[in-house]
């Protein structure tokens, strides 16, 4: 464990709390892509199901349980409690175009051709693209509530912090996880445009608005 990874994970935790706070205080899930949130459930369940047969550490266990539980809870809030506030007509990214290629990639690139390892690879590839429906929605509406942009910034920071973590681990432990690193670089790159607008508007106290 190094500080980059710790702060990355904490940033990930923070993003979930920001999202829950947004839904609770505005009593609405407006501006949040259900498809992205559903993909995160798929990602966490397929990757963290190993808590049933693998013990890494208490930290690892608690975090995994939290991410599975919180992502399912967010889905429940969106689908049941605050259902009327979700507008499927703007959440139109075609998820099937992501899942198919990711499944194919997982079958080709994995560390062992076993069910759990292919599932792990799938979750890595899927996570790298899971934010796309959300970014697509942002692009469509052209604006976002400030709290939603903080959620995305925390999520993007988590991914960005994993990069120095990998560099650190390469020098301190001499290991590289090529699948996680490749997918992680792609995932972080997807946030580039968002971060540009975030830093030039929200951080300066303005509303997040994309140029027409």
């Amino acid at each position: 464990m190094n500080l980059f990874r710790l702060f990355g994970d904490l940033s990930h935790l923070a993003s979930i709390f920001i999202l829950l706070h947004k839904i609770r205080t505005t009593r609405s899930c407006r501006g949040i892509s259900f498809k992205t949130q559903a993909l995160y459930v798929a990602v966490f369940v397929s990757r963290y199901l190993d808590i049933l047969w693998e013990w890494v550490s208490l930290y690892n266990f608690v975090m995994k349980v939290f991410f599975i539980a919180s992502s399912c809870f967010i889905l429940y809030l969106m689908k049941m409690k605050y259902r009327p506030t979700h507008d499927p007509s703007i959440d139109t990214f075609r998820v099937e175009f992501l899942v198919g290629p990711c499944a194919l990639l997982a079958l080709i690139f994995n560390y062992k051709f076993t069910f759990t390892e292919v599932l792990w690879s799938l979750s890595i590839f899927l996570e790298s693209l899971a934010i796309l429906p959300q970014l697509f929605m942002l692009q469509r509406t052209g604006e976002a509530e400030t709290i939603t942009t903080h959620y995305l910034a925390a999520l993007g920071a988590y991914r960005a912090l994993y990069i120095p973590n990998w560099i650190y681990r390469y020098f301190s432990e001499g290991v590289v996880d090529p699948i996680a690193v490749t997918a992680g670089l792609v995932q972080t790159a997807l946030y580039a445009d968002f971060f540009y607008v975030y830093f030039t508007t929200v951080i300066q106290g303005q509303k997040f608005e994309l140029p027409a």
């Binding site: 994970d9 190993d50 890494v56 975090m63 991410f67 590289v176 996880d177």
Partner: peptide
């Protein structure tokens, strides 16, 4: 150099 065993990251 390739880490192929065990997934300790989240």
């Amino acid at each position: 150099v390739w880490k192929v065993e065990g997934h300790d990251e989240l």
